[in-house]
């Protein structure tokens, strides 16, 4: 039961079973960056800005205020895990097409919360739904409108596909 200052946790990280080693008082963001996952970006270290967001069992959490050992037994996804087989996800592709970033520092966080929002909803999304889902993200370049546009575009396409499937 007792574990020393160093702790090892097992989790499924971007689809691969992984053991992570870290220190008790360290946040999860540091442990993940040590794995080379630099998409986990620490900015405010206060839980406010959202750049360090990761998906923990599908839900966005701020890794800078998450104890490292809370990753134990969970499925963890970082922005590096959004693409598959070297191909960007539809959401990532749409961020490029909608020019949903300038400097792109905030982008990994926005993408992960948007991916979770799309996963937990069906069909088209309203501005309000997107704003609510992405409330925990700051963009100092002020790309909020194009981010919203990108997420809504992906949701609308999916809506069209759902409707098409229903009609068939």
């Amino acid at each position: 039961m007792t574990e020393g200052g160093k702790i090892t946790v097992s989790c499924v990280l971007n689809g691969a079973k992984t053991d992570l080693c870290g220190e008790a008082a360290q946040p999860a963001s540091e442990a993940l960056r040590r794995e080379g996952l630099f998409g986990v970006r620490e900015t405010c270290s206060l839980g406010v800005c959202g750049t360090c967001t990761v998906l923990l069992d599908g839900e966005p959490v701020s890794a800078c205020i998450l104890p490292f050992y809370a990753l134990e037994g969970s499925e963890v996804r970082t922005v590096e895990g959004l693409e598959s087989g070297g191909r960007l996800s539809a959401l990532q592709q749409q961020f490029i097409e909608s020019q949903a970033f300038q400097c792109s520092f905030c982008t990994p966080g926005f993408l992960l919360s948007a991916a979770a929002l799309l996963d937990s909803t069906e069909g088209a999304l309203t501005d309000e739904q997107v704003e609510e889902g992405l409330q925990g993200h700051l963009c100092r370049c002020g790309c909020y409108e194009t981010v919203k546009e990108a997420v809504r575009a992906v949701a609308a396409r999916r809506h069209g596909q759902d409707a098409g499937r229903g009609a068939r």
């Binding site: 967001t53 966005p60 925990g136």
Partner: peptide, 9 residues
């Protein structure tokens, strides 16, 4: 409370 990331944890 806070934002979605805080409420999830």
């Amino acid at each position: 409370v806070g934002n979605p990331q805080v409420r999830a944890a």
